[in-house]
């Protein structure tokens, strides 16, 4: 039995996904956060995960880079394949995995270090990089996130002096210095004011062809603006489930599931 209605668009079905999630479930102790989640994540696209609070969206995202390991008593079952490697396999190297799969959090979390050091720290850790290469890379990623002109004269200042939106873009830059294949963004705009939120949203769209992105969002309008694929989570019998997955066009124009339809038209959740 499929737990979601498969998208019928023939073009997308042909492409094999970069990440393939099969029958994933996660529980904290005896509490099941979500179960029976299977979905594909396609390279170079933005996959939006939407749904009401507490339906397991963030828990789902944390499985994709094994951040779930950090939570005591958290158990994950099922399969996630990233270009053939089994992410959930106990022997999978989480340090290496997390360099391939970057993550952005709801609240910007720069380290209490200088702007420069925030970016240099992961770079140095990543490999012995020459000093001029270091400066070059830092400038490139800061330009990528549109922060260069704002901070180029204050790179040695504490990152905590930046505004919330700037901090969030710095965190995205910090993830980009490692040149990850995939970016996981957990409600990256929800802690920001509307203007900063718009800037970050534009940034996500600009990064689209280069990075595969999975974005959790509460904001349906945002999902419809930026997403290629949309997954709809819902709580059924106090357990999170993926009730529908498809292209943004299909989900927003003709949802198959009545809950999705109700949620999108604002009737529920």
């Amino acid at each position: 039995m499929l737990s979601y209605h498969t998208n019928t668009d023939p073009d997308s079905v042909e492409v094999s996904p970069l990440i393939d999630v099969q029958q994933l479930r996660l529980r904290y102790g005896s509490h099941m956060a979500f179960e029976q989640v299977s979905l594909p994540i396609y390279a170079g696209q933005i996959t939006a995960i939407v749904g009401p609070s507490g339906c397991g969206k963030s828990s789902f995202l944390s499985c994709l880079n094994r951040m779930s390991d950090l939570v005591p008593d958290c158990h994950v079952d099922g399969q996630i394949h990233l270009a053939g490697t089994d992410i959930l396999h106990p022997n999978t190297d989480t340090l290496l995995l997390r360099r391939r799969v970057g993550m952005i959090f709801q609240r910007p979390n720069p380290f209490p270090l200088s702007i420069w050091e925030n970016l240099a720290l992961p770079l140095r850790e990543h490999g012995n990089i020459k000093r001029n290469r270091l400066a070059e890379t830092i400038e490139t990623v800061l330009r990528d996130v549109g922060l260069w002109s704002e901070v180029k004269d204050r790179l040695r200042q504490s990152a905590l002096t930046l505004s919330g939106g700037q901090q969030q873009r710095l965190c995205i830059a910090r993830a980009l210095v490692l040149q990850p294949e995939i970016l996981l963004l957990d409600e990256p705009c929800s802690a920001l004011d509307p203007i900063a939120s718009g800037i970050v949203e534009d940034l996500i769209v600009r990064l689209r062809p280069r990075y595969t992105q999975v974005v959790i969002t509460h904001n349906l309008a945002q999902a419809s603006r930026i997403a290629d694929q949309v997954g709809m989570f819902w709580v059924q019998n106090s357990v999170g489930r993926l009730i529908e997955f498809g292209t943004a066009q299909q989900i927003f124009a003709s949802p198959n599931h009545e809950l999705t339809a109700a949620y999108i038209s604002g009737g529920k959740g």
Partner: peptide, 8 residues
């Protein structure tokens, strides 16, 4: 979390 997500 931030450090772990960067694979530090």
């Amino acid at each position: 979390q931030g450090a772990a997500a960067l694979g530090l």
